[in-house]
């Protein structure tokens, strides 16, 4: 699909394909955009629970619901960065709790290998976060989002996804 992911990602980061309706404003005070790929059974419900418990967290996260973290293709992560995400979160059921028995293990294994690849491509791997959030952990969802947002903000050159070496 991609001949040169690095170039692609770099070019795409500069592009403004079409500006999103609501997300206008100065780059400086804008919260870094996070795209979260979450599973339908644990983390999505955990995020819903944060809502029903009226907890508050940073508004910069955009959730993409999938049946299972096992469905998450590493190319989704690449695509998210290409489309200007400053951080990508992958979150699913705790080990042993997967609704589909083993999807989260597949995802974890894939993530371990993919992290190195991303790093090799020059992407700062601090921008990819992997976590287990169960349906009862609304508070964990909130803290993961807030901490991840702060982590991205604290990175040198926070708007550039490539690591500074």
């Amino acid at each position: 699909m991609e001949n040169n992911i690095v170039e692609d990602v770099q070019n795409a980061q500069g592009d403004k394909e079409y500006p999103a309706g609501g997300a206008k404003g100065e780059d400086k005070d804008k919260e870094p955009r996070i795209i979260a790929f979450v599973c339908n059974w644990c983390t999505y419900n955990g995020a819903d629970l944060a809502g029903t418990s009226r907890m508050k967290y940073a508004e910069n996260v955009r959730v993409i619901k999938l049946p299972c973290t096992g469905r998450i293709d590493p190319l989704f992560v690449v695509e998210a960065f290409k489309k200007g995400a400053k951080g990508v979160l992958v979150s699913g059921c705790h080990p042993g709790d997967c609704h589909y028995t083993s999807g989260n293990y597949h995802s974890r294994r894939k993530y371990t290998a993919f992290r190195d690849l991303l790093s090799y491509l020059g992407v700062d791997i601090n921008r990819v976060e992997f976590s287990w959030i169960s349906a009862s952990e609304g508070n964990k969802w909130v803290s993961v989002i807030n901490e991840f947002t702060n982590k991205i903000k604290s990175l040198p050159g926070s708007s550039d996804i490539f690591s500074k070496k």
Partner: peptide
């Protein structure tokens, strides 16, 4: 991919 693309900033 369409979902991700719609989020382009």
């Amino acid at each position: 991919f369409a979902e991700i693309k719609s989020l382009a900033v």
